[in-house]
């Protein structure tokens, strides 16, 4: 096995098969492996630069080979998963927003093509982590159902403030597509050479979001502007933008919830449930993340009532 690409493929495959990663979503696995490579670079370099692996190469070169192999292996699974998610979404809500009929399969294809292109950027991949995990866990469905049953603050915000004249199923799909497109904010960001630099908050300024909105409207012509705005504005702070779309607020909360989502096989006795814990912590950090506190309160109550 002389080819570096083949060696990297075997090495990455082996890392992906690690039992510690079995409960993680695909992009979380990628994140974990990148973290592992970054944090252990000093101890890994002597072994990886040996004759058996990649001799006569610097760590940066080795990392680049491994990163390319990792992303290509992850993409194989990721694009399939993305396609499956997009196939499961009912796009009839687009007709309700636009009041016109458009070929829904074309909408789906446009999103898929756009995302595949966008996911070549590390920042976009990283930002997609939370969205993908949330979509895979179906977290939106269960909370939106409760919101429509309770008909409290969030329901009022969705139907009266954002004026979404649609049923709960359409709203779920609307949020799901917005969630997929949330990482479109990185359409114009410049990739950082150092992959370890990352903002915990993932918040951008309104002006930047508006610029991305305009660019996306040009690029994704089949999609209604409300949908694009819902996706892009989920990257701004509610505290500085009180007229932020309700769906954007929901998306920003759930993508952050799932960004560092830790799968707990069993919750320790004496500990609160994962969602309840997370929402309670988020309530205390709402200013830091720019969340809507009233929304967090309602989600916290839902999580507490259902032991989520």
């Amino acid at each position: 096995m002389n080819n570096d690409r083949q060696k990297a493929e075997v090495f990455i495959k082996r890392l992906l098969m690690n039992p510690a990663l079995q409960y993680y979503e695909i992009l979380q696995k990628e994140e974990q492996i990148l973290t592992f490579l970054n944090t252990n670079s000093q101890s890994l370099f002597p072994a990886l630069s040996s004759e058996q692996f990649f001799p006569n190469k610097t760590w940066q070169q080795i990392f680049a080979i491994l990163y390319n192999s990792l992303t290509s292996q992850i993409n194989e699974v990721l694009f399939k998963e993305l396609e499956a998610i997009l196939n499961n979404i009912n796009y009839t809500f687009i007709g309700l927003l636009r009041q016109t009929t458009c070929p829904l399969s074309q909408c789906r294809d446009q999103i898929l093509t756009f995302e595949k292109k966008l996911l070549n950027k590390y920042e976009a991949r990283n930002a997609f982590n939370g969205s993908l995990t949330a979509l895979k866990l179906n977290i939106i469905d269960k909370y939106i159902e409760q919101i429509f049953q309770r008909r409290e603050y969030i329901h009022f915000e969705l139907t009266k403030v954002q004026r979404l004249k649609m049923g709960s199923e359409e709203i779920k799909n609307f949020i799901k597509v917005s969630m997929i497109l949330k990482n479109a904010i990185h359409l114009v960001t410049v990739g950082t050479a150092n992959l370890s630099i990352e903002s915990v908050m993932d918040i951008v300024q309104r002006a930047f979001a508006d610029k991305v909105n305009r660019m996306l409207e040009e690029e994704l012509r089949l999609l209604p502007p409300e949908l694009i705005a819902s996706a892009v504005n989920s990257n701004i702070s509610f505290l500085e933008n009180k007229n932020m779309e309700t769906t954007s607020r929901i998306i920003s909360i759930f993508t952050m919830r799932c960004k560092y989502y830790k799968p707990y096989n069993t919750v320790d006795r004496g500990a609160e449930t994962p969602d309840k814990s997370w929402f309670n912590i988020a309530r205390r950090n709402y200013k830091f993340y720019g969340f809507d506190i009233k929304m967090l309160d309602e989600f916290y109550k839902i999580a507490a009532e259902h032991n989520w």
Binding site: L15, N18, A20, T35, F36, A47, V200, Y260, N285
Partner: peptide, 17 residues
């Protein structure tokens, strides 16, 4: 802890050279 959480130094993988 949540505000200071940097996922970059959290890895569940436990391997050495």
């Amino acid at each position: 802890k949540d505000r200071n959480m940097d996922n970059k130094d959290i890895s569940v993988l436990d391997m050495d050279s």
